[in-house]
Design a protein around this nucleic acid. Sequence first.
RNA 1: GGGCCCGUAGCUCAGCGGUAGAGCAGUGGACUUUUAAUCCAUUGGUCGUGGGUUCGAAUCCCCCCGGGCCUACCA
Length: 491
Amino acid sequence: MDELMAQRLAKLDQLRAMGIDPYPPRATRTHTAAEVTALVEASDPVQTDTHLAPVDVAGRVVARRDMGKATFVDLLDGTGRIQVLLRQNQLGDVAYEALRLIDLGDFIGVHGEPMRTRTGQPTVGAATWTMLAKALHAPPEKYHGLADMELRQRLRYLDLMANEDTRRNFTVRSRVVSGIRRFLDGRGFMEVETPILQEAAGGAAARPFVTHFNALDEDRFLRISLELHLKRLVVGGFDRVYEMGRIFRNEGLGFKYNPEFTMLETYEAYADYNHVARMVETMVSTVAEEALGTMTCSFRGNEINLAPPWERITFHDALRHYGQLDLDGFPTAERLRPELERRGLEVAPAAGFGKLVDEAMSHYVEPNLIQPTFLLDYPVELSPLAKRKPGSPHLVERFEAFIGGFEAGNAYTELNDPVDQRARFEEQLALRAAGDDEVELVDDDFLFALEHGMPPTGGFGMGIDRLLMVLTGQPTIREVILFPQLRSLKD
RNA sequence: GGGCCCGUAGCUCAGCGGUAGAGCAGUGGACUUUUAAUCCAUUGGUCGUGGGUUCGAAUCCCCCCGGGCCUACCA
């Protein structure tokens, strides 16, 4: 039925008949592909008879060019490609004939001298070869790679095998994540882990996933943010904490949405949102420089420069500037809604002032914030966990960071007044009663913690996946998540 | 959830009422410095699934399955 697989299974049998284990438990490798290339580059660049000491390389067979009594094979390992040259007079007739049993996708090891070919290509001239692991399926097409989006996501290993860009994106992701940890650790932050299964999912306005804890016969919610637990730790006396971990929101899929995504949150006692802004622009630009070698990147047709300082503009000024909308003239939901409707914006009937303002901002301001920008001082209705701005009781000390036209981070001077916090939760409750089901829930346990005193604190949150979209220049979040959510396949 | 588009060989794609095609991969052959190797020959298909229209369906219509883009809610 599956003829290609049957052929490969037959080759397995032939290998075993020759006394060769097609899946040996160990491999010998003295050099990676990159190391051999460097070794050859560092030696006499002219092709000569000078002999370098033999090396052992190992990798997946990704290309094969059979020339009769000489065969070229390209091996791919974690560091890149290396060409090997297998010649009948070097290997002997039996070992050379056995090359028939090597297919694309197999892992082999080669022992031989590093050399250059006539064209100067660094190559290992094989003295012997070893089967390391036989593949039973053919790899994707060598030139076009794996292009089908669905296959690339469902069979990510094939995507990684075939497409160098994919390998690069996830390599960058790894470097960015470790770079962020290094940056924060270097500033005296302590990494902590807080519960994913929670009795109440708070800290953000989003629908949670629900699961059930059998032993206690109680429902649990998967966390939708990290905020409330991290602040409890600040109450407890950990001055600088952060967590980078998966959070879950029971919402739709889209080019910038995956229901599980990685969130970074930091909390720094004795800092405010101005401190945080300086830290964020320094952190993102530093990490970009480390991971990409540059502070500029290309995203959705724009060249983005991440070098600090980033642009700063207040929420009010931005709406005035980009939307010709002056909130001073529309201070309540009752006044603002008809104005937005007059302008042709669609707004939910249950939307309170906060949601209306947010809608206006998303429509007029957000798409214009291509270069990194801090949008400062949000309306209090939109930010139930942020501290009010002195002298402006309707504003809070909050910023969102925008890059490439969408939100990449969110920060505030944390609300540490437990009485005000309780009042804000209750305002959210009123919104819920009015029909908005995506609001902050009252969290009495968190309030009890705040009542014990939390120092003035600057907090920050950032979607790592979205940052990665910008840094790698990928147009969809699925390109920076190894295994994005997909509908399950039914027979 | 709504709109538009896509599903053909292991992979990348043509074909869009009249005998199912190409390139790569595979198989056999030639070739000891190639590198998208080249050259000769050749195997391989329930055309996503199920129904319908038709003398005849990969092609037209409908249902379903999966995916992509746009759109709405959420970061």
